[in-house]
Each structure stands twice: as C-alpha cells, then as structure tokens.
Simulated scan of single mutants.
Amino acid sequence: MASVIGYLEMEIQIPHAHSLKEKRGTVKRIVERLKGKFNVSVSEIGEQDKWQRSVIAVVTVGTSKKVVDSTLEKSVEFVESLYPGFLINYHKEIF
C-alpha cells in the first residue's frame, strides 16, 4: 500500500501584532494547536522577519488521499475559526 503525502501552505496576516515578539506568540499558538489537534507536522516557513505576516506549512502522511485531504481542509478551517480574517491565502498539494 502506497503512502499519500499532503502539503498545505497558509499565508496569514496578523493585524494585531506590533512587534516580532507579538507575531511569534500568535504563530507559536497556531503551530502548537494544529500539531495537537491534527497530529501533523507544522512550521513557519516564510515572512519570519515581518511583524504582521507569516507563511505556515502543514504536512501529513496517510494511506488514503481522502483522509489526507480532509486533514488539510480541517486544518484550514481550524485556523480560520481560531483567527477569523487572518488567513489570506492557502495552497495544498497531495502526492
């Protein structure tokens, strides 16, 4: 049985952040909550030097495209529910 890999990249805006420290706190909460809720690998991969922007990647592996896709979609919905209006754009791929 072949494994299926899912990759999700989310660009987020953090309008309340007025410093890198505030931004990092918000990003850390998002990363930790995604890891805990969905058992996925998560990392900030872009815009580390900007106060109000971040790019977060989520990766998951499974045996079914349907399950992997569902996990990625639920991750997007979760971020949107945690911080309404923060998600600017997202892109996902399944291999």
Rank of each mutant, 00 (worst) to 15 (best):
V58M: 06
R29D: 04
A57W: 03
R24L: 07
L34R: 09
L8R: 00
E73L: 11
I14Q: 04
V76L: 06
H18P: 03
I14L: 07
I12D: 00
V27P: 00
A17G: 07
V68K: 04
I12V: 10
F95R: 09
I30S: 01
E32D: 13
E44A: 03
V27G: 06
E73K: 11
R53S: 13
E32P: 07
Y7H: 05
I12M: 10
I88F: 08
E11H: 13
V58H: 05
I30Y: 03
I56M: 02
V42T: 04
V61C: 04
S43A: 15
K23D: 08
V40G: 10
K66T: 11
G25F: 09
V55T: 03
T26M: 08
K28G: 07
N39V: 09
V59W: 04
V58K: 12
S41P: 04
V27N: 03
L82M: 15
I30W: 01
E44F: 02
Q13S: 15
V42D: 00
V55K: 00
S54C: 09
V59D: 00
K66Q: 14
S70I: 08
P15Q: 04
V61T: 06
E77G: 13
K37G: 09
K66S: 11
V76D: 07
K23C: 06
E22F: 12
S43L: 07
E22R: 12
H16F: 10
I88K: 11
V79P: 01
G36T: 12
L87R: 01
R24F: 12
F86P: 05
G46L: 00
K74S: 04
V67G: 10
K50D: 07
V76R: 02
V68Q: 02
S3V: 14
A2V: 12
L8W: 00
H16L: 12
E9M: 11
K35D: 01
V40Q: 05
R53Q: 14
H16E: 14
E9G: 13
H91I: 06
T60F: 00
N39K: 14
V31C: 04
R29N: 06
K66M: 09
E44G: 04
S64A: 10
V61S: 03
L87W: 11
